[in-house]
C-alpha cells in the first residue's frame, strides 16, 4: 500500500499515539469501567492498522519489529496461565489477591481480575498486530514482477 496524502499522515502523527494511550487506559481500568482486556487490546492493535493505512506497508515493515509483538503475545498468554495456576490450592482461577474495596496498595482491590485483564490485553494486542503484519508481508510474496504504478485515490 502506498502512503496516503500529507493530510492523512499529519492526522496519523497527531492521533495515533493517543490511540495507544486510550487503549492502555481502557485496559488497565477494565475492572471498574466498561472495557477490559479484549477491548483494550483491540484498540491498541488498531494503531498498527492505522500506521499501515496512512504510511504504507513498506515503511511499517521497516519500523515494526515482529519479535516484539510475538513477545507480547507469549508473555501475555504465559502470565494469564500463571495467574490462573497460582490459585490452585483452592480452585483453578481462584481470585487469591482480592482485598476489601477500600484497601490500598499497588495491585487494585479486584486482585487477579485486574492483572488478568492486563495480561489478556497484551496477548490480544500482540496477536492482532501480528495478524495484520503477517498478512501484509504475505501478500508481498505475490509481487514478483515490478508493480505498475498504482492508481491511488488522492495522488
Amino acid at each position: 500500500m502506498n502512503p496516503l496524502s500529507v493530510v492523512v499522515r499529519t492526522g496519523c502523527d497527531l492521533f495515533a499515539w493517543f490511540m495507544v494511550v486510550f487503549g492502555v487506559n481502557v485496559l488497565v481500568h477494565g475492572y471498574m469501567t466498561p472495557g477490559g482486556g479484549f477491548q483494550g487490546g483491540a484498540i491498541i492493535a488498531t494503531f498498527t492498522a492505522f500506521l499501515l493505512v496512512a504510511y504504507g506497508g513498506r515503511k511499517l515493515l521497516g519500523w515494526a519489529n515482529e519479535k516484539i509483538f510475538d513477545l507480547f503475545e507469549e508473555v501475555g498468554l504465559l502470565a494469564f496461565f500463571f495467574l490462573a495456576f497460582m490459585g490452585f490450592p483452592v480452585t483453578f482461577f481462584y481470585n487469591y489477591l482480592v482485598k476489601p474495596l477500600a484497601a490500598g496498595g499497588v495491585v487494585p482491590p479486584a486482585g487477579t481480575t485486574a492483572l488478568m485483564s492486563i495480561a489478556v490485553g497484551l496477548e490480544v494486542s500482540g496477536a492482532l498486530s501480528m495478524v495484520i503484519l503477517t498478512m501484509y508481508r504475505g501478500i508481498r510474496m505475490f509481487e514478483t514482477a515490478p508493480m505498475e504504478e498504482e492508481i491511488g485515490h488522492d495522488r
Binding site: 482486556g37 482480592v98 479486584a110 487477579t112
Partner: peptide
C-alpha cells in the same frame, strides 16, 4: 466479595475464567 465494579469483567475473568482460556 470480589471488589469489582464492572460486573462483566468480573464474570469474564473471575467467575467464568475457564472460558477465557
Amino acid at each position: 466479595n470480589r471488589s469489582t465494579e464492572n460486573i462483566v469483567t468480573a464474570i469474564v475473568f473471575d467467575y467464568r475464567g475457564f472460558d477465557t482460556i
